[in-house]
């Protein structure tokens, strides 16, 4: 099994800790002028989803996690599993609710998501950076108010709630950045 040294640490690197694959969120070097260097790492455990801090002695190695990212299109859910398909091989993969996590509120049929596979099963589903969703509920904005002054909440067809400018109305389709859950623009139907 391959190893990573602390010098290779960076955001997104995946390695094994306590028998669980985890992903680096942030890596900071801590080094006294006279003394040993350490890496203070913020990481996410990919199965439990837990975020924690761990310190490593610089120069130490960790075991690489045998995880693979694959691009799969979302098909449908049967209520228990969410089914995805490889558009080239037509192979299907089912992910459970835990693997979906936050991605649940950004799932659009036929959108290509990134599924992180470990030990033959999907453990994390990452939606595309941008998705287009229809607004199902929002207060009507005041007439004449076209500037985005703080905005108002809008519920989307998936149940996600985002802040939108006042001029955006029910039944309109909007583009949302899934990384921060922010409104980007209106989409012409």
């Amino acid at each position: 099994m391959a190893n990573y040294s602390t010098n290779e640490f960076k955001g997104g690197l995946k390695f094994m800790m306590d028998g669980e694959p985890c992903s680096i969120i942030d890596n900071e070097m801590v080094k006294p002028g006279k003394g040993q260097a350490f890496n203070r790492v913020k990481l996410r455990k990919l199965i439990s989803g837990k975020v924690l801090e761990k310190t490593f002695k610089s120069g130490d190695t960790v075991e690489a996690a045998d995880v693979m990212d694959t691009e799969l299109a979302y098909l449908y859910t049967d209520g228990e599993f969410w089914h995805f398909m490889n558009n080239e091989t037509f192979e299907q993969v089912a992910a459970d609710e835990k693997a979906l996590g936050e991605a649940l509120k950004w799932l659009v049929e036929n959108d290509v998501c990134t599924l992180t596979i470990w030990d033959g099963r999907p453990i994390v589903v990452t939606p595309p950076n941008f998705v287009e969703l229809e607004i199902t509920e929002t207060d009507p904005g005041l007439k004449g108010d076209t500037a985005g002054t703080g905005g108002k909440p809008a519920t989307l067809s998936t149940g996600a709630v985002v802040r939108v400018p006042l001029f955006v109305q029910v039944n309109e389709v909007i583009r949302v950045d899934t990384r921060n859950g922010e409104y980007v623009s209106r989409v012409a139907k």
Binding site: V30, G35, Q36, K54, K57
Partner: peptide, 20 residues
């Protein structure tokens, strides 16, 4: 514990505890 378990150098542990 991941650093302490194999560390035989007192100064390394002192530097770890002091800086963190």
């Amino acid at each position: 514990e991941n650093i302490a378990k194999d560390e035989e150098d007192k100064d390394t542990l002192l530097q770890l505890l002091f800086s963190m």
